[in-house]
Structure formats: C-alpha cells, structure tokens
C-alpha cells in the first residue's frame, strides 16, 4: 500500500519535471505568442467584435495567420465559402507538417487528435526538434508543449481584445523571438542530422518564392516547391544510392528510439 503510494508520488514528481521541462521549452513561444495574440485581439476588437470572439477563435481555430486572415475577411463581409477556401489554402502547409510527423505521432495514444489540432508552425518546430527528456513519456511531453503554446495564444488574444487599446507598451520587435526560435531550431536540425540537401532545397525554394510571390502565398508555395525538389532529387539521383543507405541507417536508429517511449506510455496506461 505504502509502496504504491510512493510510486504514485514518484510518478507525479516525474510528470512535474516533464511539465517544467515543457514550460522551459516553450518560453520563446510564450514571448512570441503574447504580442502576436494581442495584435490579433486588438485587431478584432477594432473591427467591433466582443472579446469573447477573440477567445473562441483562439480556442477553436488556433492558427495565427489564419485568424488574421479571418479578421480581414470579416471586415470585408465575406461569405462562408470564401472563409472556407481562403483558410484551406492558407493553412495547407500544415498538411506537410503532418506528413513528417506520421511516425512520431503513431504511438502517442489518446492525445493524438489534440496534437494534430494544435499543430501550429511554432509547435511543429518544437516537436520536430526537441528531444523528450530521458525517462519521460513522449505523449505527455508533446501534450504539455502543444497545450502550453495554445494557452499562450489564447491568453495573448484575450489580453489584446480586452485591454489592447488601454495598454501602450512598446513591444515593437518582440515578435522577432519567433524568428530567432526558428533560426535556433534550424541549426539544431543541422546538428542532429547529417543530410545537408534539405537546407539547399529550402534556400532555393524560399528565395525564389520570396522574389516571385506575394508575402501571403510564399510559405505554401515554397514548401510545395521545396518538396518537389526533394522528390526530384530522390527520383533522379541514381548516384544517391549510397546516400540513401546512409539515411536508411538513421531510419532504423530513430525507429529504435521511438520504440522506447511506446513502452513508457504502455506502462503508464496500465
């Protein structure tokens, strides 16, 4: 009995550590989502909507650029089909995010629907780059990260809608924290993997789209372009067989690494 109690206490403590670790991981997102969320709330408030709508939109939609687009469409008096199509096109990039998370998310259990729902640019970046603390449950850690980010976004937007007009903080430039986060996570990806071609593909596709397409469209187009470059190289490069073998080896390694958290969560479930 006492043993059981101690075990439970230990587990709770472990969860606390995991939560604190997630909290630390998400600090940059906090600093980015608060001013961005406030900007959204402020905008919606300015368009004449009650703050409860800022809360509902951030709770249920939870897409930064998607919500900014929604405010613009609301102001323009758009119809429902326009809302649906514009949102689908703007957020289609998220489909590519899921594509690279199929394996990672295959064993996260009942939090999977929420993790998919909460897959913003920033959460995607954190989940693909941050390692689960040793001994911690992957599903729990991922859930904490996703839910904390979601919470920051809701808090920011409600804050902006409620008192955006009253506050006059000079937060100019603070949203750059998200750019810095992406830079750091890109470098971490560079350290974690030996493949270099994705970076070349990104520079090619990114700079091309930056020059040729409007700011609103460039991300989706550049992701499609970059993916085509990756596929093209995979299909064309016969001389790549050697490289493929190399990546094949890392595949099995990630498999083995992924197998451990499964055991963890299985134990937790029982």
């Amino acid at each position: 009995m006492i043993e059981k109690e101690a075990k439970r206490h230990e587990m709770r403590e472990g969860n606390m550590d995991l939560f604190l670790s997630a909290l630390k991981t998400t600090v940059p997102v906090f600093l980015g989502y608060i001013p961005l969320g406030m900007a959204f709330g402020f905008l919606l408030d300015g368009a004449g909507y009650h703050w409860i709508y800022a809360f509902l939109m951030s709770l249920l939609i939870y897409a930064g650029s998607g919500q900014f687009l929604a405010v613009a469409l609301l102001a323009a008096g758009a119809g429902l089909p326009e809302f649906a199509i514009a949102t689908l096109l703007l957020n289609l990039r998220h489909a590519f995010y899921g594509l690279s998370l199929l394996e990672k998310f295959s064993n996260v259990g009942k939090v999977k629907p929420y993790l998919i729902f909460a897959l913003t640019d920033e959460t995607y970046a954190l989940l693909t780059t941050t390692e689960v603390p040793t001994g911690g449950s992957k599903s729990r850690f991922y859930f904490y990260i996703a839910a904390l980010d979601h919470l920051y976004w809701i808090a920011g937007s409600v804050l902006g809608a409620g008192l955006g007009s009253l506050l006059d903080l000079n937060l100019e430039g603070m949203a750059f924290v998200l750019t810095a986060l992406f830079v750091v996570l890109t470098i971490e990806q560079y350290f974690n993997s030996s493949v270099r071609f994705p970076f070349i593909a990104a520079v090619g596709a990114g700079v091309t789209s930056l020059i040729l397409f409007s700011p609103d469209n460039m991300l989706l187009i550049s992701i499609i372009l970059g993916t085509l470059i990756l596929i093209g190289r995979e299909k064309l490069g016969k001389g790549n067989l050697r490289v493929n073998k190399g990546t094949g080896k890392t595949h099995t390694q990630t498999h083995a690494a992924a197998a451990k958290p499964v055991e963890d969560s299985a134990r937790e479930e029982s």
């Binding site: 590519f96 693909t128 780059t129 890109t186 493949v195 994705p198 990104a202 991300l219 970059g226 990756l230």
Partner: peptide
C-alpha cells in the same frame, strides 16, 4: 521535410 520547413 523538418529541416527544410524550418529553414523555410
């Protein structure tokens, strides 16, 4: 995809 998307 992840390294490419992050740089993008």
């Amino acid at each position: 995809l992840p390294p490419m998307i992050l740089l993008l």
